[in-house]
Each structure stands twice: as C-alpha cells, then as structure tokens.
Design a protein around this nucleic acid. Structure first.
Lengths: 196, 196
DNA sequence: CTAGGGTGTTACCGGTCTGTAACTTCTAGA
DNA sequence: TCTAGAAGTTACAGACCGGTAACACCCTAG
C-alpha cells in the first residue's frame, strides 16, 4: 500500500473541525450537514464519503473533543510534574477559564441532552468518555493524598457540570460565578479532613 | 361577556400538558406539533388557535413548569411551617427524589441548551424563572440562619443542576448518585461555620 | 503521458417540519 | 329550536432535512 492517507489538504479534517465548532455553538439538531460542508468550504458528497452518516460525524466529533481533553490533562502533568495537588488546582483554574470565555457548556453533556433517544449510538460513546474523565479526576484526587477522593472528585464534577449549564440558563452573574470559590473551598475542606 | 373560557373539556389544557410531557421526554426540537396534537387527542388547527406559534407553546410550558415548582415550595412551608432548616432538608430530599425517578433533567436547563439562539424568546423567560428559583433558595438558606447563605444556595444549585445533567451523560451510577451526601455534608459544614 | 482516486457540481428523492385556508361538525346557551 | 363560537377535518404551502446518483474535474503517482 501507499503511505496511507497522506498529509495533503484533507477536507475530512476541515469538515470535522467545522462540525465540532458548529455543533458546539448551535447544537446538533440546530445545524444541518449542508451548513457544515458549506462552512468547511466543501460539499455534502465529500462529507458522506468520509462519514457514514450525520450520527457518525457527531460521534467522531465527540471523540475529537475527548482527545482535546486528554491533551489538557497531559499539560497539567507537564506543567506540574509529580505535584498532583498543583495539578488539581490547575484543573480548577482551567475549568473556570473555560466557563468564562465559552458561554456554551460541555459538548458531551449538551449532546446527551439533545439526543434523548435512549438507544442513540452517540450515548454509548458519551458515557464511556465521561466515565473516563471521572476516573481520571478521582485518580488525581487520590494521588493528591485526599482521603475521600471519590467524593471530592464527584462533587467537583457536579459543580463544574452544573456551572456550565447554569451559565446558559441563569447567565454569567448566576451561581456559576462562584465556581472557583466553591471548588477551592471544597479542596481545602477535604484536605483538612484528611490531615486530621 | 360570558363567564370567560369556562370549565368544560378544554383542549388547550390537554395540549399544554401533553406538550410539557413530550418536550420533557424528547426535547423541544425532538417533537413536532403534529405529534403533540395527536397525542393530545386533537389537531394542529386547534393548537394554533390557542398558541401563536410553537415557540409560544414552549414558553407557556416553561411557565407551567415554574408554576409546579411554586407548588412544591408551598408544600415545604405547609409541611414544616416556620422551620426553615427542615424546609431546606425537604428541598434536598425532593431534589434527590426527582433525580431518582426522572432520568431527564430540568426542563428549563434542557431548553436553554437546545435553544442556542441567543435571542430566542424563551431564553428571557428561562432566565427570569431560574433567577426566581435561585432567590428563593437563597432566602431559605438565609432564613435558616446560615451565614454565607448565598454561597450555600448557589453551591446547592450547581450541585443539583450538575447531578441532573450528569445523570444523562454518565448515568445513574455516576457522580449524581452521591448528591444527597454532598448536599447534606455542605449544609452541615455551613451550619458549623455559622455557629463558630 | 496516462490512469485512477479524491474532489466538486448539480440534481434529485422521500420525508418532516411549522404554519395556514376553507370547510364541516359539534355543543352550549338564549 | 336557533345560533354563535369552539373544535375537528382535509388539504396544502414553503422550507428544510438527511442521504444518494451521475458526472465532470482535477492532481498526483507511475
């Protein structure tokens, strides 16, 4: 065989990236394949040569999002090698930054809400990827020497998830404005409980 | 005039209630007006005689949801008259029950996510109603004698909002399973801080 | 130069969506 | 009983949706 799909211009990547952006901004059911391909500077046929269906494209977008999240976790480790507590604080800061500048919430959660059919193929993927993120946060808390690592990680998860959705319903001046204070307070509290 | 829209059979109410149920289960963009009217045992023309548009129907449904929430708060006061702390615990219990038996999250939050257009008429309504709920929870915390009432109320809000969305993305075995433990722990913690 | 795969273009299919028009049927009240 | 208004029925408009077929065009590897 040749050297696989080479490094050219690759409309597939343009479609994928454009779709991620548009799904994020307007929701999955809020944007059609025509709009995506037009924004990506290509056409519908090319999309369907690279993706089986719109659902397939959605799933691929979610995987790409998870991949981006992976990169962030690696950045935490690179910036604070070995210092798990610093990495946890970096996670809080990153989460807050995303809240501030984004406006729209987590792609996975939004997709889960939009795709209400319980047997939708994307739901399996969402559950897997979310579970992986949860496990990683639990691991970080545990490695940071926190006693009830699962409970802290789950609480932080819910706080962030809640902040993201509250940002869209109540607005930026709502409860989500206090996210950092809550998260840092919780970490302090859980660390105190462990030291005792 | 006659005695206004009398107390007969009233297809309008059937449409409204059916729409609430179907929007809740399948999302707003996931159900069409034809499906609503058929499930309500009526037809599209009758719907459009009572509601200006689908968006108008959506808004009316959200108002009805807010009305139901109002009734819950009155039940708290009726069951624990004057005892604000008991009412706060009742709120936690009610929230947990809703989580358990429902599966789909908060109609307002789901709508806010689905209706991503920033100028959508429903967004104003959602913000108002969510703000009102927040104010009420803050008031309850304050009246229960908790020092940092706003911070506790906002934290509880985010936890519940997060639990609702996490239930849909990660599932029932995810972080949302710990909601009661987190909420009760927070209340205890905040009460301790006030007593000191 | 040539062959072939990736790409672009156009047109189309069948379905669903919101919303409306015109007409008939029912029902309640005087 | 008669009448007015609410409700049901059918058909339709116009737009958009996901997905496909057929064909012309590159552009590069050999």
């Amino acid at each position: 065989m040749e050297d696989g799909t080479a490094e050219r211009i690759r409309p597939r990547d343009r479609i994928l990236e454009t779709a991620r952006d548009m799904f994020h901004k307007h929701g999955i059911k809020g944007v059609g394949v025509d709009a995506i391909t037009e924004a990506a500077g290509t056409n519908k046929m090319t999309l369907y040569r690279h993706f089986e269906s719109k659902d397939d494209l959605v799933i691929e977008c979610l995987r790409a999002t998870a991949c981006s999240a992976n990169a962030m976790w690696q950045k935490f480790e690179a910036e604070h090698p070995g210092d798990k507590l610093a990495q946890l604080h970096a996670w809080v800061r990153m989460a807050a930054d995303c809240l501030m500048m984004d406006g729209r919430g987590c792609d996975m959660a939004n997709a889960a809400i939009e795709l209400s059919e319980t047997d939708h193929p994307a739901r399996r993927v969402i559950k897997e990827l979310k579970q992986a993120q949860r496990d990683r946060l639990v691991g970080l808390c545990r490695d940071a020497g926190i006693g009830q690592a699962e409970l802290l990680a789950d609480t932080l998860s819910l706080l962030l998830e809640g902040a993201r959705v509250s940002l869209q319903s109540v607005g930026a001046e709502g409860p989500s404005a206090q996210f950092v204070r809550m998260a840092e307070g919780l970490i302090t509290s859980f660390r105190g409980a462990a030291a005792r």
